[in-house]
């Protein structure tokens, strides 16, 4: 899409594209530990329903996802799998780090086998604190992300680098 890359899109079109993108996010729930249950409650339970925000869970594969939400403790053994699955998600992709373990290592900050935060492996857009964060907290994180997407400059995101499929 040469128009997008070279920044020649008019403002109204950009904001239209951003609005349509932010309300049609497909979230890949990378549930690792306890936070995965709260994420499941947020995504699948009728009470904290996330679909009303335009976010659908359960893509068929990472290649169809827009947003990945890492929830739970990241161990050193798991890191290669995380990196590989993150690489499989096509751009533009966003990352939410949910829970204190994914943010910074959390209660296991001194453990010999825990990675101190998923941001050591992938770039993170939104951090949701808590142990575990309430489902409403995750929803707030998603709303924050949607605001970020709404203000995004698409030309910044695609600076003309070739899309590499890994």
């Amino acid at each position: 899409m040469g128009l997008v890359e070279s920044g020649k899109l008019p403002k109204p079109l950009t904001s239209l594209l951003n609005t349509s993108r932010k309300y049609s996010i497909w979230i890949f729930q990378w549930g690792l530990a306890c936070c995965a249950i709260e994420m499941g409650a947020a995504l699948g339970a009728p009470r904290y329903d996330v679909m009303r925000l335009g976010v659908i869970p359960l893509p068929a594969s990472p290649r169809q996802a827009d947003l990945v939400c890492f929830s739970g403790t990241v161990t050193d053994k798991m890191v290669p799998a995380i990196r590989r699955l993150y690489d499989q998600i096509p751009d533009p992709k966003y990352v939410i780090s949910m829970g204190s373990c994914a943010n910074c290592g959390g209660p296991y900050w001194d453990s010999y086998s825990v990675t101190k935060g998923v941001d050591q492996v992938v770039p993170v857009d939104v951090y949701v604190p808590g142990c575990p964060p309430r489902p409403e907290a995750l929803l707030e994180g998603i709303v924050l992300l949607q605001e970020m997407i709404g203000k995004e400059d698409m030309a910044e995101r695609w600076k003309g680098e070739p899309l590499v499929v890994r």
Binding site: L32, T75, A81, Y112, S113
Partner: peptide, 10 residues
């Protein structure tokens, strides 16, 4: 081991 957090040591 993908969720081994080292409880007994902690």
């Amino acid at each position: 081991g993908y969720m081994h957090r080292g409880y007994e040591k902690l």
